[in-house]
Design a binder for these strands. Sequence first.
DNA 1: ATTATCTATAGATCTATAGATAATGC
DNA 2: ATTATCTATAGATCTATAGATAATGC
Lengths: 219, 219
Amino acid sequence: MPEGGAAESRLERRKARTRASLIRAAQSFIAEGNLNVPVLEITRTADVGMGSFYNHFDSKEQLYRAAVDAALEAHGQLLDHLTGDLDDSAETFAQSFRLTGRLFRREPDLSRVLLNNAPALITADRGLAPRALRDIEAATAAGRFTVRDPELAVVLTAGALMGLGQLLHDRPDRDDAEATDTLAEDLLRTFGLCSAEARTISHRRLPDIGTVSWGGTAA
Amino acid sequence: MPEGGAAESRLERRKARTRASLIRAAQSFIAEGNLNVPVLEITRTADVGMGSFYNHFDSKEQLYRAAVDAALEAHGQLLDHLTGDLDDSAETFAQSFRLTGRLFRREPDLSRVLLNNAPALITADRGLAPRALRDIEAATAAGRFTVRDPELAVVLTAGALMGLGQLLHDRPDRDDAEATDTLAEDLLRTFGLCSAEARTISHRRLPDIGTVSWGGTAA
DNA sequence: ATTATCTATAGATCTATAGATAATGC
DNA sequence: ATTATCTATAGATCTATAGATAATGC
């Protein structure tokens, strides 16, 4: 019996696949703002039998919570994966912001789940918010940022991302990278970097975004 | 037969009262994030008969749309009313932001309706967004702001308010005026005011917020 | 006389489960 | 032999309306 992480038994993998499929289906409905969907329609979208739903969740609300959670978690995992090798907190912060900005076009469903759950994105202990708090506090401690109120800085960052995501969703013609990096630069200046450095850091080359692993991760 | 605005007939006023009551009830459910509510429960909360619902709306979704619309409209009316006599666009912008910040504690239901509909707040053609766009463009034209991308400035403003609202909702102990004015000052600097002026404008005395008229206004 | 509202309910829809089937483990 | 999934459905719940009642207009 292999242990830890991905291996497990075939039975457990099948179960996990069913669960992930239900979560993906729920996310597609959350993304389109359509929460009043019969369980049967969710299971049809997930391509599983109606009964399977109740093997995994007690109610639609519980599924929805898990679906939002999974979206936050996928986002957080992606940021960890792509910014793990940076050692300047200010730069980790900036890259996380800029990568998220690029995610809106690349993962419209994920981003619309987050937009439609702004309160969760802004203050959850999963996903972007806790990582932004960590980076802002570290950068302040290191003398890179001069932020008096890290909590306020976090909600400004998360709010800016909500606004950006909505803009990119409403105006498909706009250049996402340019808009994102402009906002990143503004935030870095607000947090105490000088103009020149804000500009440099917010225009560094970014790592390639791979594929976001979609629903498997959540609690 | 009196004409225009508020007067109308007694019958029409009664009808308007029923409608407003349904909208208020819907807003309370939207505020608590509970959209899956039977029509009967909505009408009970509104203290009207089940049948009255169908005199006014074809479906719950239509009621919900009207309820969000009414919240945006109430917000917009309030801003117009309280900032109407200012002639500096930069100051109109700042006061609108600061008044909205103070609204979160004073009108928790209104603000939670808006937080739970972030996309609507950010890009609707009602409420804060169109007014912020107007003020930012005017202030830029007048040489007060140096904003290159007014649309981006608007979504940053709206996003900052979402973040602020969520923070004030999650942390009842925080000083709302201080947090709000700090963010206002940050935004004014980002939009091109010098530090001294940003500070002054974001700490001017505000007019008293009266009562927000709640559901009567929307389409 | 007209209009809005209310109460009661038929019919439609949805939830949650029981029992049958299929996949995996050993 | 065990575990997950699937299909079919009883019972619960909800929607939308018909018909009765109450308020207003004239």
